[in-house]
């Protein structure tokens, strides 16, 4: 059974008013368990919208969305997925550790379990020592890492990540890419990942979905045939460069459309 199945999905915002926006047009995409799918495309082409639709945070204008064989709505109620938003969305009244504990708290974990798990995750995203800081005392990139820790807290089988590393410097980004790759392998989580970075998409993905400028359509899907586990060596392989070039060319076509 596929984890996500989108068939003929259309999304139009403010369809009745004058400033109506056709964000997505006829999206068909099936994602199998354990896949790592990157969405790449020009700004405003509907990548965030697509993630929101899968997460049942908005309803499609037309089309069907199945998550784990259920309606997207049921999947949300069952908390089948974890989400990292484009902005960190941390609660300013909670310390960093309390922010990471939030989903665990809502699921009724014991206080000690919440703390233990949150500490582990903060160490994973290299935020140990900042447990009791407040969000505004952290840089943008650090806040985003806290948001990632929060999304991983409930060990979801499906992770929706909207440009999670956009605010990070190159070195931290590469480190986070490696960590995310490890997490993906160890937990066999299915991940849908929005990014603007071609190297990042190639390094992480099993498939890369290139979307065209608005109205967002799937222009091309590139298979990434790089062996796993990937590491520093991956970035030197010939296949890595070939895939990068392929995606770059499709992206160029996407912008020109």
């Amino acid at each position: 059974m596929s984890v996500v199945a989108l068939s003929n999905v259309n999304m139009t915002f403010n369809s009745s008013s004058a400033n109506k926006t056709v964000a997505l047009k006829e999206i068909n995409l099936t994602i199998e368990p354990g896949e790592f799918i990157s969405l790449i495309g020009p700004s405003g082409c509907g990548k965030s919208t697509l993630l929101r639709l899968v997460g049942d945070l908005i309803k499609p204008t037309a089309g069907d969305i199945l998550v784990n064989g259920k309606s997207a709505h049921q999947a949300r109620l069952d908390q089948d997925y974890g989400m990292v938003f484009q902005a960190p969305v941390l609660f300013e009244w909670r310390s960093i550790i309390k922010n990471v504990m939030l989903p665990l708290e809502l699921r009724g974990y014991s206080r000690t379990d919440q703390q233990k798990r949150a500490r582990e995750l903060l160490a994973l995203v290299e935020l140990n020592g900042f447990e009791n800081h407040y969000p505004w005392q952290l840089s943008g990139g650090m806040q985003q890492r806290a948001a990632i820790a929060r999304a991983l807290a409930i060990q979801p089988k499906l992770l929706l990540m909207d440009e999670p590393f956009g605010a990070l410097d190159e070195m931290t980004r590469e480190y986070m890419n490696l960590e995310l790759h490890k997490i993906w392998q160890e937990t066999q989580t299915t991940i849908i990942f929005v990014t603007h970075s071609i190297p990042e998409a190639v390094f992480l993905s099993t498939r890369i979905v290139v979307m065209s400028a608005r109205p967002g359509e799937i222009l091309h899907i590139t298979n990434v045939d790089l062996p796993v586990p990937r590491g520093e060596h991956t970035r030197e392989e010939a296949a890595y460069f070939e895939t990068e070039t392929e995606v770059r060319e499709w992206l160029r076509a996407a912008k020109q459309k």
Binding site: R52, G55, L57, R76, L77, D78, Q79, Y81, G82, M83, F85, A87, V89, F91, L102, P103, L106
Partner: peptide, 17 residues
């Protein structure tokens, strides 16, 4: 913040929560 509400909805949190 609408994003904060979306976050809570992604946790399927009740109105009371």
């Amino acid at each position: 913040d609408p994003a904060a509400l979306e976050l809570m909805r992604s946790y399927a949190a009740s109105e009371f929560t």
